[in-house]
């Protein structure tokens, strides 16, 4: 199967994260699993690279983060939970539109079927 990793993912990571958060609140590991499942295992993401992207999204106000509360009933280290904001949803729609435009242009250039 085709594997998409490293440079090919760069520039799309933020949109991938926003898209995975559309399914609901998640911590880092869960986000990676969602991205992996949505890409049918073809996306090979270095998991540590997720966090710089998450911090950028948080700064831009596209996601909101919160430490898992003590009442979560979970044992072990705390996790930081991320959720999509309204601004993030708008950014996701924008990202999707940009992707469609990009694919359309590239298909035209490469002569690939739309």
């Amino acid at each position: 199967m085709l594997q998409i990793a490293g440079d090919k993912l760069r520039g799309h990571l933020e949109t991938l994260v926003l898209s995975s958060l559309e399914q609901g609140v998640a911590h880092g590991l869960e986000i990676v699993k969602r991205v992996d499942a949505a890409g049918s295992g073809a996306l090979k993401l270095k998991e540590g690279s997720l966090y710089p992207a998450l911090y950028r999204l948080e700064q831009a106000g596209f996601v909101k983060a919160q430490w898992e509360g003590e009442g979560s009933g979970r044992r072990g280290a705390r996790r930081r939970l991320y959720r999509l904001t309204r601004k993030g949803k708008r950014q996701l729609n924008l990202g999707r539109q940009e992707w469609v435009d990009f694919v359309t242009v590239m298909n035209g250039v490469l002569g690939a079927p739309a």
């Binding site: 270095k46 998991e47 540590g48 911090y55």
Partner: peptide
């Protein structure tokens, strides 16, 4: 291996913090 090289993560983190 799955997490990725620490140096690269550090570099990216530096660029992502306010």
């Amino acid at each position: 291996e799955r997490f990725g090289p620490a140096e690269e993560i550090s570099r990216n983190l530096r660029g992502s913090l306010p």
